[in-house]
Design a protein around this nucleic acid. Sequence first.
DNA 1: CTCAGTGTTCAGTG
DNA 2: TCACTGAACACTGA
Length: 300
Amino acid sequence: MKQLSLDCQLHPNQRVSHFEAPNMPELPEVEHARQLIEQTAKGYRIIEVGCASDSVVLEGVTAAEIRQALRNRIVCAARRRGKHIWLELDKRPWPCFHLGMTGAFHTANTSPIKLVTSHVVEEKQWPPRFTKLHLTLSNESELVMTNKRRLGRIRLRQDPTGEPPISQLGFDPLLDLPSLEKFSEWLTGRSGAIKSLLLDQSFAAGVGNWIADEVLYQAKISPKRPTHQLSKSEIKIIRLRLRHIIETAVQANADASKFPKTWLFHRRWNKNANSELAGHSIEFITVGGRTTAWVPELQR
DNA sequence: CTCAGTGTTCAGTG
DNA sequence: TCACTGAACACTGA
């Protein structure tokens, strides 16, 4: 576990605490990270940039290009679409981020202010292990992106929404959920299992494995059901559950302990525990190449 | 030691 | 073209 060194090393210093987005980067977690970035950096200038020379995480750019693009820029906004985040700066190109499975944003401040929507985490080291990008801002706060498994990506784009990969995303359930008419039109035009479609980022951007399972559990529909044979009322329920689950998780700041206790979410993580939900057993199968938790007796 | 895994992409097959 | 499968990516932790 050698950590790639930052080629612009910043003085590691002691912090009382720092804040980080939890680690389960589907839409709600990514939205929470976006809010964290705005609270920390919006309106401030980037004074120093540390960037790891990690050719896996840096896609199509070098650490030097990242540093040059970000240094002395003002952070105007942090935007999100699906699981992608990008910063609007006072000058292009702009940095774009995907967290992969193990990415997170962390912030620290010399005089910690209360960040209502953030988790206070015990200080271990700063900057944290697996830091890929380390920004120091003109308000004396610091913003770090970490990526343990290196499945995350950092890119530079002149026009993030107009270029891949963000331009290839489908609708974002929080930003532009389609009307029921459009939604069912798109759904019936596809074949394959409904769960696979929900996971398809060019269909619904931001839906990940647990959200797809949760939607289908609450809609009482089997994850294996072929999309084209869903009834109009089932499609309606899927759409409403999709919106409801994501809105609820976002309002909870992606804090799983605040999710409703009735959710399948709380039971899906320990497969060995022989979990039950509402008196029915939870089964684990593979759909669309992904572990799928469902309750066969309740989902048709 | 083995193996699954919150995500994405690509090659190969049907 | 669509849809599916498996592998690859890289590493942690059970």
